[in-house]
Design a protein around this nucleic acid. Sequence first.
DNA 1: TTCCCAAATCTGGTCATACCAAAAATGCGA
DNA 2: TCGCATTTTTGGTATGACCAGATTTGGGAA
Lengths: 230, 230
Amino acid sequence: MKENSLLSDLAAYLFSNSSDNGRTPSERELAEHFTVSRGQIREALAILEAMRIVERRAKSGIYLTTTEASVEAMALFARAGVPLDPILIYETVELRKIHEIKAAELACNRATEENYRRLRDILAASEAKLAGGEGLAREDRDFHLEIVRATKNSVFYRVCSVYYVMGEHRLPIYFADSARSRRSHEEHIRIYEALLARDGNLAQALMSAHLQGAESYWKGLIGGPATAAG
Amino acid sequence: MKENSLLSDLAAYLFSNSSDNGRTPSERELAEHFTVSRGQIREALAILEAMRIVERRAKSGIYLTTTEASVEAMALFARAGVPLDPILIYETVELRKIHEIKAAELACNRATEENYRRLRDILAASEAKLAGGEGLAREDRDFHLEIVRATKNSVFYRVCSVYYVMGEHRLPIYFADSARSRRSHEEHIRIYEALLARDGNLAQALMSAHLQGAESYWKGLIGGPATAAG
DNA sequence: TTCCCAAATCTGGTCATACCAAAAATGCGA
DNA sequence: TCGCATTTTTGGTATGACCAGATTTGGGAA
């Protein structure tokens, strides 16, 4: 990992060391605790503030935000190597299903030749990787995001990108299993064909079934929706 | 506006003043240009990097990122008072429909008494505001987000929050029209009743119709999907 | 003239220090 | 015990300096 560990360490520290009203230690104290300069602390705090994790009140102090932090914050932590709460992983998969099934439908109406070409390229690259016995983490991400891109809704794309930023560390593990990679790849092919036929219902159904695989995988790994629904 | 204008100004400046390879002026040059200290520039750059807008390469320079910036970045700019590209607004509305219609359905299965109570409180507050001739911007946000919260999927909530952060400046304008506020409020009541009856299909349909209003409003204001689909 | 490599320069990363003004904590006096 | 003035703390900001690797530059060799 090359990532910013101060950021996640700081966030963790703030959560553990804040008073009842959410007030955290001062910048100077934090700097001393982490043996870094105040500038470093301020840079990290600026990010945490942008992520709505803390609020900095001039001449008063730093306070934990009561509202929910952004998804970006989750992505940021995931990138920094902080293990994500299993419940959050499950919730993310549920949300991903909602997004990508709808994306598949929209893509059927809006995909251009350019999108189809890129999808073909990605499938070809996947084939090559499979032949070489390599994992499909990158290709999987590219395939799914290309479909979202085909919706021609850039905000949609931005939102969905986050999932893959979050899963950067986990995806390679998922695709380490070559049988799973092969099956996933074949499902991708069928989805591509449905998109090409512009069959919205079929594309939705195939995407739903495809993501069901990932959902089952994570459920099996973490305990399922009973926990998440609590 | 109290917000960080340096951040958006800086972002705009970086986009206008980067070379072919995406390299931007150095921190020292930026500091001089904006007549602030290097520390201020570094703080802003830290945020822009977290948002995947730029990449800072040690001892080399600052480079614009080629991939799509995060939704959070949009929210950040919106908060800073940067007018959002109309196309992005339209795309956001489309995405919001996808999210919230699904949220209404899920909420029918998962809403607890606590959620219902809060929804009632919000509706009561809306009523009071309407009687006083005030706008419903805050109550509208609270109502919609409470439904998302009722899905018991915190990631879902995080994602949807962004829309309202983005719309912080626009929503009050939308609700300045008292007739629109009144109609919106009545639709909220009907949605609440569907949720209470746990009628998923009805809730979806009502939410869809409700958001159609917002969609039409923005379409009328900016030109519609023809532009967005381009 | 062209090409390659060493030296000078530039760049982000980091730290220490200082000053401001307002908020927060303190303590004195009523 | 309470209220207010004083002291301390706190975030916001600026300046200056040093490091080490990346980049650029320029001169010498082919």
